[in-house]
């Protein structure tokens, strides 16, 4: 464990909790893509099946459990409790266009052709594109509330910190996991455009809206 990974994990956790709290306190999930949140729940479920097979640390286990619980709580709030506020007319990204190719790729390119390893690989590939329905929704409506922007910034920050973590681990331990690194870089690139808008607009106190 190094500081980049720890801060990355905490940034990820902050993003997840911030979103949950926003939905809970505003009693609304307007502007949030339920599809992205469903995909994240699927990501955590397929990745953390190793909770049953290997123990790494108390930290590792508790974070996994918290991520899974929060992901399902978010999905529950969007699709059940505050369903009436869910903006499904704007959440039109076809999630199957992500899940199916990613599933195929996980079968073809993986470290080991075993069920658990294929599911882990699937979750890594899926995580890299799971935010696309949310970004698509923002591009459709043309704006995002500032709290949604903070959420995305923390998620993107988590990815960027993981890249630094991989560089650090490569030089200090000789460790690298090519699948995680390539997927992680793809994921970070998806946030670049958003980062630019965030820095130029949200930080200066404006609502994030796209140039007309």
């Amino acid at each position: 464990m190094n500081v980049f990974r720890l801060v990355g994990d905490l940034s990820h956790l902050l993003a997840i909790i911030m979103l949950l709290k926003k939905i809970w306190s505003s009693r609304s999930c307007a502007g949030i893509s339920g599809k992205s949140q469903l995909l994240f729940a699927l990501v955590f479920t397929t990745r953390y099946l190793d909770l049953f097979t290997s123990f790494i640390s108390v930290y590792n286990t508790s974070m996994k459990v918290i991520y899974i619980l929060c992901a399902y709580a978010t999905v529950y709030l969007i699709y059940v409790k505050f369903k009436a506020t869910y903006d499904h007319n704007h959440d039109t990204f076809r999630a199957e266009f992500l899940v199916v190719p990613v599933g195929g790729l996980a079968f073809l390119v993986n470290h080991d052709f075993t069920p658990l390893e294929i599911l882990w690989t699937f979750s890594i590939y899926l995580e890299s594109v799971a935010i696309m329905p949310q970004l698509f929704m923002i591009s459709k409506t043309g704006e995002a509330e500032s709290i949604t922007s903070h959420y995305l910034f923390c998620l993107g920050g988590y990815r960027a910190l993981y890249i630094i973590n991989w560089l650090y681990r490569f030089y200090s331990e000789g460790f690298f996991d090519l699948i995680a690194i390539v997927a992680g870089c793809v994921q970070t690139i998806l946030y670049c455009d958003f980062f630019y808008l965030y820095i130029t607009k949200v930080i200066y106190g404006q609502k994030l809206s796209l140039p007309a």
């Binding site: 190793d50 996994k64 390893e117 460790f175």
Partner: peptide, 10 residues
């Protein structure tokens, strides 16, 4: 080289 036996990252 990576150790893919156990994935220790979240």
């Amino acid at each position: 080289s990576g150790d893919y036996e156990v994935h220790d990252e979240l």
